[in-house]
Design a protein around this nucleic acid. Structure first.
Lengths: 192, 192
DNA sequence: CGGTCTCTTGACGGAGTTCAAAGCTAGTGG
DNA sequence: CCACTAGCTTTGAACTCCGTCAAGAGACCG
């Protein structure tokens, strides 16, 4: 499972890692397994770890005043599960991250990753590229929320992330898109 | 005007700069002045510079298919004006950045800032902290767009950025919030 | 002054929500 | 192997918020 992480880093940084670097990385990441429905992070706790998913699927959500779950992220293989805000600030998280399938992760703390970045240049490049892509993706999502209709957002979602649709139930996808499950159902009927 | 930038960097990085570092920074940033309504970046061009605003106000927007301006950012003193996506990728920007008051900036290119970061550790810290805060702010905006009503978003905006309301006209604020100027006007009547 | 920019107000329509009910599916235990 | 339940999806009807269109009122500037 470490090979997957190594490949991911090399891919993102566009560089090969030396055997020494690989060993250093392996010694810092701790494996973890979660059963379906188990919590990786509970609202109110600090997001101490960032988890690289080697197998499985997770979702991140918060609960609004009416008691409804608002989904803000889906994660699958080769994604990093963490609440960035809490992970960066050390403050308690507003969000819950839950395994939606049996999931395998590789964990690292903020202190560890910061120390590693100083020793492995490829990791610095990787986090920079990741942050940039993340910012761009979030920005696009913002744009489609402001201008787009429910139908447009669903179609964009399906072309950009078709794999998610097979692994998460529709009412969760609806929540992620910021619409109700009923509206999503009606949109799908028109445009299957 | 350079002092303002130096103070900003020291504040963000929580560190003092040496005289040599200060000199290095001063030699890399180029001053620029823009009259109200002048363009800092035009859609279709590459965002070659990041501009630190020492005085003035700017807005960033794109034009949708109907010809309406969609405002995505406001900038004032101590903000960095640039299209992050174009600046990072070197590809043409979809956005226009325009001075909304007479504005003074300090400019730097991507190559320059990357070189500087390697020489001045405080700058590395600063960009990292900035990226994190930017990501968090964008994420919050996403959340309020998904769950909140027009009224909620306006109230959040007014508590978080009261100073913007005095410097930009309401129809631009409405566009930024993703609502029409008429709706904003009605919301304001209820909750002044 | 007149013209442009800005904000307000009203009437109407449409996209999407809410509420309620009924099918559908898969997992569980007898 | 079937029955039962819990979670998921669909459908319909009423309602709500917000956008669109249209018109008018200030405010600022040449």
């Amino acid at each position: 499972m470490y090979e997957q992480l190594i490949r991911y880093i090399e891919e993102y940084a566009q560089a090969r890692l030396t055997p020494a670097e690989v060993a250093l990385i392996k010694s810092n990441f701790k494996p973890m397994s979660l059963k379906k429905r188990a919590y990786f992070l509970q609202a109110g706790a600090v997001s101490k770890y960032a988890g690289f998913i080697t197998k499985g699927a997770m979702r991140q959500y918060c609960v609004d005043d009416k008691g409804d779950e608002k989904i803000v992220h889906f994660y699958i293989e080769n994604h990093w599960a963490t609440d960035r805000e809490s992970f960066a600030s050390g403050k308690p998280s507003l969000y819950t991250i839950e395994a939606w399938e049996d999931t395998d992760l590789l964990l690292i703390t903020r202190e560890q990753i910061q120390a590693l970045i100083k020793q492995v240049p490829a990791l610095a490049t990787m986090t920079q590229v990741m942050d940039e892509r993340h910012a761009i993706a979030t920005h696009k999502r913002l744009g489609s929320l402001i201008v787009g209709s429910a139908k447009m957002r669903y179609q964009e979602f399906m072309t950009n992330y078709p794999h998610f649709a097979q692994r998460f139930p529709q009412h969760q996808i609806a929540s992620f898109l910021g619409i109700t499950k009923e509206t999503l159902s009606r949109v799908r009927r028109q445009h299957p």
